[in-house]
Design a protein around this nucleic acid. Structure first.
Lengths: 219, 219
DNA sequence: TCAGAAATGATAGTAAAACTATTGTAAAAT
DNA sequence: ATTTTACAATAGTTTTACTATCATTTCTGA
């Protein structure tokens, strides 16, 4: 059996829905590769058009500008994380076990998932680590927020906060803790690669240390 | 008595030392105002030149590009924080009291300090909150790091990590905690203003809640 | 004090980025 | 059969991010 998983995105993020056409899916697939390769600042619609074999103007029919496209990708990413968490904890009953599962998911490197054929989650995670915060660090955060562009992130934060609340009913700052976990798991990923003296964690597959650190904030 | 405080900056950050001339100091002063007003993406050397009443070319004699200027400002900021921490804890003996002082400094809104006449610390802090991470979130982090551009940040993180170690000799992740404190104090500042649902903390002068949250990670 | 070096101003120019607009055509929907 | 729709092709505009040249002003130290 082969499923194709589709996340419903906020329609203000695009001009034409990229999920609906071949070109649209190509834009998503290749933009992930290209932003990963070039970094967001050096990524342009012109380069993307050449990469895909289409024209700049065609891409502008899907996304208002490259920042909107980034916001779309980041938004998709956070929805994907929430989906994975929900699937993972579905059959768990003990709150602490759920917290463990959450930390496992956000602290572990992602792998490409084949049920989303045009999205490479591994590369997308690297993009979110390196450029994700640029989606909201702008002068137009407020409008973007009013347009609900950050809803997936806020929803995820809220969801984790509730699990924290379940596990520790007296803990006074569940939302701040959830946000700290999300932020720092990505920051540490970046530091491990580029500024290793900022943490004790080292590259490699072992994320146990990091999860222990995260847990020590709560327990 | 009127002192003028000068922080020695890594000379690779600039082409000509901005502290040494009137124009240089004007570049610093006005770039802080302009980046604060426009945000880093919309800030250009052309606009800065017009603002100061000089030419684009003259500014390029001081800084290679606007990103370098941002890195200079951010770098200055972290040195300034470290200086303030050192001054503050100088006469303290109890490690926990030192930790409290550190958190007080990093969680509290900065005020303009008159001993640095051409730098408005209040605006600079807002810039670091909104754009500081863009100094290292680039494709050239590695070279920039090799050029020691992030030394002040790493030094500060190390300094706080040592104070954590003094206060809790058995705590296993002092560096990660120091980095988390630095990162999150700025993130929360941003969220309070723009994405309030991500934390329990609210705008206003009371940072006690936030300091309590930070302390709860350690004690 | 005067020569020369250094700093700045004035002006010009280039390549790329970030768009917008127009037209023609093929495929899909009605 | 025709009318949308999607896309390609092409061209053009404004802004950004520089680089270069040369004329002045200002500083410096012999």
């Amino acid at each position: 059996m082969q499923l194709d998983l589709r996340i419903r995105m906020n329609s203000s993020l695009y001009l034409r829905d990229p999920e609906m056409t071949d070109l649209g899916q190509n834009i998503i697939r290749h933009s992930i590769e290209l932003i990963y390769d070039l970094g967001f600042e050096h990524f342009t619609f012109k380069k993307l058009a050449e990469h895909i074999g289409t024209t700049e103007a065609s891409i502008y029919r899907y996304f208002e500008n490259k920042h909107r496209l980034l916001t779309y990708l980041v938004s998709w990413y956070w929805s994907w994380i929430e989906y994975r968490i929900i699937m993972q904890i579905r059959n768990m009953s003990r709150p602490k076990e759920k917290i463990q599962a959450v930390l496992q998911i956000i602290c572990t490197r992602m792998n490409d998932d084949l049920s989303t054929s045009h999205i490479n989650e591994e590369l997308l995670q690297q993009i979110v680590v390196a450029d994700g915060s640029k989606a909201y660090l702008t002068k137009h955060v407020t409008e973007d927020n009013q347009s609900q562009f950050f809803k997936p992130y806020k929803e995820l934060s809220m969801c984790i906060a509730e699990l924290v609340q379940d596990a520790c009913p007296n803990y006074p700052h569940p939302k701040s803790l959830a946000t700290t976990w999300l932020e720092m798991s990505h920051s540490f990923h970046f530091y491990k690669q580029h500024l290793p003296s900022l943490t004790e964690f080292s590259k490699g597959p072992d994320d146990e240390q990091m999860i222990d650190f995260m847990k020590s904030m709560l327990f």
